[in-house]
Design a protein around this nucleic acid. Sequence first.
RNA 1: GCGCUCGUAGCUCAGUUGGAUAGAGCACCGGUUUCCUAAACCGGGGGUCGCAGGUUCGAAUCCUGCCGGGCGCACCA
Length: 629
Amino acid sequence: MKSILQELKTRVGSAVRRLDAEADPLVRASTEDQHGDYQSNCAMSLAKKLGRPPRSVAEEILRSLDIADLCEPPQIAGPGFINLRLRPDALASRLAAIPPAPSAGGDRLGIDPVEQRETVVVDLSSPNLAKEMHVGHLRSTVIGDCVCRILEFLGHDVIRENHVGDWGTQFGMLVAFLRRAQPDVLARPDSIAIADLEAFYIQAKALFDADPAFKKESQETVVALQQGDAATRLVWQAFCNESLRHCHRILDRLGVAVIDRGESFYNDLMPKVLDRLTRDGHAVESQGALCMFLEGFKTKEGEPLPLLIRKSDGGYNYATSDLATLVHRFETLGARRVIYVVGMPQKLHFEMLFAAAYKSGIAPATARLEHLAFGSMLAKSGAPFKTREGGTIKLKDLLDSAVARARQVIESSAAAAQGDAAGPIESSGSSEGADDPFAAAGPGDLAGPSAASVATRRSLTSAQMEDIAEVVGLAAVKYFDLSHNLAKDYRFDLDAMTSLEGNTAPYMLYAYARIRAIGRKAGVDYADLPAGEAMTLEHPSEIALARAVLRLPEILDQAAADLKPNLLTDYLYDLSKSFSRFYDRKLGVRVIDAPTPALRLSRLRLCDLTARALALGLSLLGIRTLEQM
RNA sequence: GCGCUCGUAGCUCAGUUGGAUAGAGCACCGGUUUCCUAAACCGGGGGUCGCAGGUUCGAAUCCUGCCGGGCGCACCA
């Protein structure tokens, strides 16, 4: 089924084209309810072009506009806006046409995949294996996963590439150090275990700086590694595997699937790509380095700035491996589109890389190369996000702190909801140590009752409580990240993201859980409700909710077209609010005890569709839903 | 110095190829509960959209120049 917006664009478009074959109908959702649900803004610009008064142009558009089955009679307002309000019966029949959710999962709410599917490579997460994943990897992982999920949902063939850093000089040092620290690594390469990769790296680096013999050993190891020495390679592989295990513990926890294909994978391809670029005359030598000179890039001194693809010492750098990677992605993986989910500071690099790829023909002219650049995650104070000592914060610790906070919030509100006499609730302790993300995250400072006692009172086992905290905590982190405009920096704020109020994951999850609870209370299984039959929408809150549910397809189109996850979060928040109003005791309607059986059924179906839209939207953000909170 | 990017309410942020009286949330003030989850809802105050010009029916949005923050600018990725 087409989205309502698409349908209106088609209808208004064909009316507008009678006046001007090329005019865009400019249909969009109205920002204010008084202006209807959708509006067309094309009459004003068209009037200018035709040299006629805009309102008369609007009137002429309306004369040939065939829309009575969908909308109330259109209104012309202001300078020439055409305001469209959807008819409740049209909303009702569209809702009724949504097929039931398949029991096997994969509910699409009747949204069709795109006609033209593409093979899209998304480069996401991509940490360096020398160290453990840290907070700097969160955004690429979360945003990349969301983009993949949206594109996958729309039917594209998405290849999620985890382009890990597993090659380069520091790996010589790490391999040499591993051989010293765990001498039996050659005998049992799969049994190595490094409890703390971060500490391991620091130790190795310290020894490298202090011990000339070890430094020499490290450098020899790099050479051996690059020459393909089997024993060295084995230890290197063991190290990388161990690091990847760390990595995938995090990714699994976040529910993010990727294909690991590190820089080393392209090692053999790099010289071939360089040969080809040299042979074709795209690469030239300058100051001993192999370079590609591209239009429009300048150095500080105003000289042409080349893309260096081989250092003067003969070594390769990341431009080299990125070009080789593109060769693989286009020629072997058959990509039509490559999306790099990488932070803003690398913008220049990607501009140059893309220019080089197009110029040299590595990227077909029809292919799309995109740098989905995002801003930095800052501390709550706005300072760089570091530990008090200035070190990097492990991603695992960050997630743990969010889960701990989520547990606190859930337990506190549960206690408050129970009218618990345990005293004032310590909603947060974050006023102190504002820069420390773990302030108040410890389990010891919980003012409310223990998890077990709350769980008991809410008839949840403590295992269920743990699960809820895990889901809510991770959802909070992801949602907070995705709800911000990608281009801007944002401040990591545990209190804000775990709040039950506002545009947060807990609010959304709560709305979902509420709806599921309504079904249980009503004694119906939503999955058994009849589809296809007529529904009734009469109350304003009911109509508004129906409209919100039916906007999901156009939001997904837009979010995919712009690669902007925050469009989806904003929509979900709006949907949740619409639901809360619908279910409000004052402004909403009765559901379970609706005045008639037909209304009860219709409203329960609306509840179900709302829950399904929420669940689908959240799933595309990489967020699990909960039946109970 | 050049380039990129951001600047919107006290705070954190939205704002769809330029659209109507610039929106939310938090915080603050007030209201709603014999009633399906009040973990909710409703209302209120609060803005020279960094500044100044320009483009036009219309500018937070596009152009120019300033101011302020961040990032980048030949061999680390």
